[in-house]
Design a protein around this nucleic acid. Structure first.
Lengths: 212, 212
DNA sequence: CTGCTTTCTAAACGTATGTTTTAAACGATA
DNA sequence: TATCGTTTAAAACATACGTTTAGAAAGCAG
C-alpha cells in the first residue's frame, strides 16, 4: 500500500525541514509558500497537497517534534524524582529547573539534526496570533503543570501563584536566550561568547535557581 | 510656515498611534498598510506620504518614544546613584534592576496614553529581521551599558561577561512579561491574576535580584 | 484675489500572495 | 500489460500587497 516516487516521502519531510528553519528566522506572514517550496526543491502546490494550507504546514512543523521535546523534559523530571526518592529527599529546585531548561538549550545547539531550528521555531510560535496558535502552547503548559507539585514540595511556603509567576520568568529567560543567543556577543560588545551548551545551560539554571 | 487641514498634523500622529498598536499585536509583515490607514481613517497613500515607506513608518513608531523611554531609565539610575552617594554607599542591585524594569513595566500598564502599545511594540521589534532593525536595538543596548559599571561596583567578583549574561536574562524576564502578561492567567489556570503594575514590577525585580 | 506650498483623495500600477485546477508521471498490484 | 491510487508538474485564479501618480482641496502670504 506504499507508493513512492523520485523523492517520495522525502518531499514532505524536506518541506518540514525547510519551513522549520524559515519559520525560525521570520514570522509566519513573512515566510511565503513560494520561499518554502523553492528552498525545498518541490513544486509550489506541494504545501497545499500535503498540509492543506500554509497554516496547516505551520502546525505540522510544530506537531512533528512537540511530543519528543516534552518527553525529554518529563524524562529528566522522572529521573530526578527517582534519584531523590532513592536518597530519601525532595527533588531540588536545581534539578527541576535543569529538567525544564536542558532539553531546549541542548537542542538549540544541535544544528545538524535540525533541532536548533525547531527550538527557535517554537520560541517564535509563542508570538504568533494567539487565536491561531493557542493549541501550540497548550502542550508546553501541560508539561510545566507537572512541575508545580514538586516546586511546592521543596518550598512549601510558596503559593501556587508564586510558583506560576516564577515558571513564567523562567520561560522568559529561556525564550530570550533562544531568540537572541546569536546576538549576545553584540549586546556585550564581544565580552560574551556563545560558549558550549553546558555553559549556557548552567548560566541559565543558576540565574533561575536563585530567582526561586 | 504651518499648514493645516481638516485633521492636519493629527493625521500623522493618528497613523503612528494606530500602527503602534497594530505592530504591537502582530509582526511587521502581518500588518498591512491598508489595515493601518483604514484604522486611522486616513487615505491609503498617507503612509507613503508621511513616512516614505512601510519600513519608514515602523522606524518612526520606534523613534517617537525611544528617547523618552530610555530617559526615564537613566533618570531612575541617576536618582539612585545620587541617593547612594548621599548615604555614602554603593548603589544596590535592587536599585539598578528597579531602574531597568520600572519604566517599561509601568508603561505596559498605561493603556490610555498608548504607552502600553509602544512597550509591546518594542518587545516585538526585537524579533524582526536583524538587518532591518539593528539600529532599533542599539539605543537600548547603549542604555544598559551604563548600568554595567554599577553592577561591577556592587559586586566586584563578577566579570563583565557575568554581568552581561545576567542583563541578558533580565531582558528575557522583561520581554516575556511584556509579550505574555495577558496570558499569565491562562498559563496558571487562573491561579495568577494580572495584579497592579507595582506588584508585577516587584515580582520581576525580586526574581532578577536573586538571580544576580 | 493671486500665487504657492502643503495636505488629502482616488485610481491605477506592478508584483507577490495563498490556493485551485488540470493533467501528466509514477509505483505497486492484478 | 492494464489499472488504480499516489505524487509531481505547470498554469491559472483571485485577491492582497506596497507604492506611485495625477489632481483636487485647503491654508497661508503677498
Amino acid at each position: 500500500m506504499k507508493y513512492k516516487k523520485s523523492a517520495g516521502q522525502n518531499a514532505k519531510e524536506r518541506i518540514l525541514d525547510v519551513s522549520e528553519k524559515l519559520f525560525a528566522e521570520g514570522s509566519f506572514a513573512s515566510v511565503s509558500v513560494r520561499t518554502v517550496t523553492s528552498a525545498a526543491n518541490v513544486n509550489l502546490s506541494a504545501v497545499n497537497y500535503y498540509f492543506g494550507s500554509k497554516k496547516g504546514l505551520f502546525q505540522a512543523v510544530y506537531v512533528r517534534r512537540a511530543t519528543l521535546m516534552n518527553h525529554e523534559r518529563l524524562g529528566l523530571l522522572q529521573k530526578a524524582v527517582g534519584k531523590a526518592q532513592q536518597e530519601g529527599r525532595a527533588v531540588s529546585v536545581r534539578e527541576l529547573i535543569n529538567a525544564m531548561l536542558t532539553p531546549p538549550i541542548f537542542w538549540l545547539y544541535e544544528e545538524e539534526k535540525g533541532l536548533s531550528g525547531y527550538i527557535r521555531f517554537l520560541a517564535r510560535a509563542y508570538l504568533e496570533a494567539a487565536s491561531d496558535m493557542e493549541n501550540v502552547l497548550s502542550q508546553e503548559v501541560d508539561v510545566f503543570d507537572k512541575f508545580v507539585p514538586y516546586f511546592q514540595e521543596v518550598n512549601p511556603s510558596l503559593t501556587v501563584e508564586d510558583i506560576y509567576w516564577r515558571i513564567h520568568f523562567i520561560m522568559g529567560v529561556m525564550h530570550h536566550t533562544i531568540n537572541h543567543l546569536d546576538r549576545i556577543g553584540l549586546l556585550s560588545h564581544t565580552a560574551c561568547s556563545v560558549e558550549t551548551r553546558e555553559q549556557t545551560r548552567d548560566r541559565m539554571v543558576a540565574f533561575c535557581c536563585e530567582g526561586f
